[in-house]
Write a protein that binds this DNA or RNA. Structure first.
Lengths: 172, 172
DNA sequence: TTGACTGTTGCGGATTTCGCAGAGTCGGGC
DNA sequence: GCCCGACTCTGCGAAATCCGCAACAGTCAA
């Protein structure tokens, strides 16, 4: 038995919402190892994960369930949008006047908006847009985004080719 | 009956634009539906997926396996990097002189580089960097990226707050 | 020490995954 | 027209996995 695994720092301050962002609660080494296993293969059996991290199958299952419930991680299929029929993507840098966070929320409410991040630099926000074709992209950028109150100006970077896209955070 | 769903390929007039997706494999409506199911829950049982898309369990399993083998999709756990201990991220716009694709490959070879895309606009490349702390980020941007031959200049956008991050392409 | 709490383990039954053989369809070559 | 190969779907039995539950172990506070 790998019972040397005592899970000392087990008591995590339960803050289901804090895991969203801000100074998130720290995951212990075991949960991190579980996440790494699932980043390699999201369908890996619990027993195999347990063997790799030194836990029983049931323990892994409960930890995974909690990580999912807390929103710390999600297990999903990811694809290259181009392969799935979305032929136009763009990164859009946004200059904001006023409440940046409010604008970010407004942009994030759009379906075509895949990714929203507040940044330091010459842009206040960067958003990734996924569209079906040129007309769709044009409409989203010129009519929808610029119509949001607080958006002063935008700069678009249309995707020509996706070269790398990994999901291996923490596995280094 | 679900059996009406057979021989889908024959009824599918090949979309000429499909051939523009980097020579990738073409996806029919059924595979697309399977992907959507797995985007909602990467661990959903094959039988449940089959019921949803009108296929047998075994057929779903084979198609999923093929999609994975072909690299069309991957089933993975995704997390908010901040939660997993990577406290500094940045989007970096890169101006390139010479072979853009070669530079993209070089940047993509870096572990800290999570995302590389060739763009049209004032940047030739945009890369997302995931680091552990400020020193790490500084080193990656100032020493590693700018040391790549062909990189003329860069502009960094340090992440302040991740507002939205979804993986629901095609499920709208 | 006691008691509350959290996390882990072990186990049985239901469910799912897996591998394989058979049947149907489509398209090419003769 | 006919046969053949490639491909995909289906059905099914065996093996592995998932899931819920009750009991056990460790931590912390009173």
């Amino acid at each position: 038995m790998h019972s040397g695994r005592v899970a000392s720092r087990s008591a995590e301050p339960r803050d289901p919402r804090e895991s969203r962002n801000g100074g998130g609660p720290h995951l212990d080494a075991v949960s991190l190892a579980i996440i790494e296993q699932l980043q390699e293969d999201g369908r890996r059996p619990y027993a195999a994960i347990g063997k790799a991290v030194g836990l029983s199958e049931a323990a892994v299952r409960q930890r995974v369930q909690k990580l999912l419930d807390q929103g710390v991680m999600q297990i999903v299929a990811v694809t290259d949008p181009l392969t799935v029929g979305f032929r136009r993507q763009a990164m859009v840098g946004v200059h904001v006047e006023g409440d940046v966070e409010a604008v970010a929320d407004a942009l994030g409410a759009m379906d075509e908006c895949e990714y929203v991040v507040m940044t330091a630099g010459s842009f206040d926000l960067m958003v990734e847009i996924v569209c079906e074709d040129d007309d769709h992209l044009l409409e989203v950028i010129n009519r929808r985004i610029r119509a949001v109150p607080g958006v002063r100006s935008t700069e678009s970077f249309v995707y020509l080719k996706l070269k790398k896209q990994t999901y291996m955070w923490g596995t280094r």
